[in-house]
């Protein structure tokens, strides 16, 4: 998926004198080390580091202004719902990695749409149609009284200039880099310091599903 093996390749050429060891690097670790799946904890935190390493600096700092929050939420029924597919899809597309992910895994400029492509934060889920619906008609079957909740407010820093906390759940949105950097990012939530690579060093998750509680010492 990411350019991991490529990077290792570079390392190995750096250690050419020790070519005997190359095999070790690729064959990986002992049973003891392998007992933990490094992708599978801390909200799949490994994704951020991998994406940070794999995304070129120039891409991260690029900004197209193509997407904004209004259009972002327009595609969603409520904050956090899977967005609808806002463009026509070729009838032959099966909705798997060979077609959707060919653009949405990496981003970049799409000649066809004349825009920069948004990057999915969860490319490991390759059955895209499972959640993302096409739009064949805008007409409703019956009008609805559905009302969405308000999206999280922007700029919820606790102090002037302090890093804002993460206002959304990280489930399915583990990879900060994909939505918050690059030319496909939503302009209002784009960050200009993505190269720091360890997003959660400064940004604490603060998803308030229950009323905010202060720490009170038990007597």
């Amino acid at each position: 998926m990411m350019k991991r093996s490529k990077k290792r390749g570079r390392l190995v050429t750096g250690v050419a004198a020790l070519c005997l060891l190359c095999a070790l690097i690729f064959t990986g670790s002992t049973a003891f080390s392998a007992s933990v799946d490094l992708r599978d904890f801390d909200n799949q935190g490994k994704k951020i580091y991998e994406a940070n390493d794999a995304t070129p600096q120039i891409y991260m700092s690029a900004d197209s202004g193509d997407r904004n929050l209004a259009s972002f939420y327009e595609l969603r029924q409520y904050p956090g719902s899977p967005p609808r597919i806002p463009h026509e899809v070729d009838l032959t597309f099966s909705g798997d990695e060979t077609d959707c992910l060919s653009c949405h895994a990496r981003g970049g400029y799409s000649q066809e749409f004349g825009k920069f492509v948004p990057v999915t934060p969860h490319p490991e889920n390759s059955l895209c149609y499972q959640c993302h619906a096409q739009v064949l008609t805008e007409e409703k079957f019956v009008e609805t009284e559905w009302k969405s909740i308000m999206p999280p407010r922007l700029g919820r820093s606790f102090l002037g200039g302090s890093p804002p906390p993460i206002p959304h759940s990280l489930q399915m949105r583990e990879n900060c880099i994909s939505c918050h950097t690059g030319p496909g990012a939503v302009v209002e939530i784009r960050v200009d310091h993505s190269a720091r690579g360890n997003c959660r060093q400064c940004h604490a998750p603060a998803v308030q599903t229950t009323p905010l509680q202060e720490f009170v010492r038990k007597p």
Binding site: R8, I25, S29, F32, S33, S35, L38, R39, G197, N198
Partner: peptide, 8 residues
């Protein structure tokens, strides 16, 4: 997770 290799 961030390391190139994790050894336990």
């Amino acid at each position: 997770q961030a390391a190139d290799k994790s050894i336990l």
